[in-house]
């Protein structure tokens, strides 16, 4: 496929949807559904100023902190649980219980323990992101090829070498799958955590606009969140292509 064709395919549907929105909203006089043109005007005004520093950046930093923490916790615990069948049997019911709790209901509880600052918001992100990473890591570690495990054993590849070259790499396709799910969960929770008791952030700003009947601004916030999602998943794909080059090359 030529690059031109590919680009046309990638941008085709978004352009059509965008154009449709533009055309069908053009004459709108409905206060709650303003024309796209006025949303875009509000977009530039709203977000290309100090809000990038005051709201967008704090949101992204909380997301980054929560997501990274969830990666460390999820992969670390997942490897431990995946390597020990006994530990897995012991903790599985608890994990299923904890996983079934929707993270947003934890927000009021976390406020009690962690206050209403950044820590609470980071913890909300962690509480949602950790599960897909953890459970996928466990499955990935369990699925290590027995021949490869025997190879390590026979050649005395143990300890840190084994962890790095066998366990983590074997599980990496599954870990990446979990991390991808966790990323979209993380964006949602970032916004939700900012809708409660916050003084900055994207979620906070969107709610503020809604309460202040600044409808085009509110819509522009939704648009920005969608664009951030696209950007982050693009970044994720770049990292994935590097980490899993061997995996995609093999098939």
């Amino acid at each position: 496929m030529t690059i031109l064709r590919r680009t046309a395919l990638v941008f085709g549907l978004p352009s059509v949807l965008f154009a449709a929105w533009w055309v069908f909203s053009a004459g709108s006089v409905d206060f709650y559904r303003p024309p796209l043109s006025s949303i875009l005007a509000a977009f530039a005004e709203t977000w290309f100023g100090s809000r990038i520093r005051d709201d967008v950046l704090p949101s992204l930093l909380r997301l980054a902190a929560g997501y990274s923490l969830a990666l460390v916790l999820g992969i670390g615990l997942g490897v431990l649980i995946g390597l020990s069948p006994r530990l897995r049997i012991a903790v599985e019911p608890v994990l299923e219980f904890l996983r079934a709790i929707p993270p947003p209901v934890l927000v009021p509880i976390l406020i009690l323990f962690a206050g209403i600052g950044d820590l609470m918001k980071v913890l909300v992100v962690v509480s949602g992101c950790v599960w897909p990473i953890l459970l996928n890591t466990v499955e990935g570690v369990r699925a290590i090829d027995p021949v490869l495990a025997d190879t390590c054993k026979a050649y005395g590849i143990r300890g840190a070498d084994r962890l790095r070259h066998l366990v983590l790499r074997s599980a990496s396709p599954q870990i990446v799958t979990g991390a991808r799910q966790a990323l979209s969960v993380g964006i949602i929770l970032m916004v939700i955590s900012e809708m409660f008791a916050a003084s900055s952030g994207l979620g906070f700003t969107v709610v503020q606009f809604q309460r202040g009947f600044q409808i085009p601004e509110m819509w522009s916030g939704v648009l920005l969140l969608g664009l951030l999602g696209v950007l982050l998943s693009g970044l994720f794909r770049l990292v994935e292509r590097r980490v899993l080059a061997w995996y995609h090359g093999q098939r």
Binding site: D145, Y155, I157, Y247
Partner: peptide, 27 residues
């Protein structure tokens, strides 16, 4: 040392050929 029947599964697919050979020598 052992050479297994399943060559496709006894080599590390994420390591290049030279690294596959070098890995057991790390110790």
């Amino acid at each position: 040392a052992v050479v297994f029947q399943e060559y496709g599964r006894s080599l590390f697919p994420w390591l290049r050929v030279a690294d596959n050979v070098a890995l057991p020598l790390r110790r």
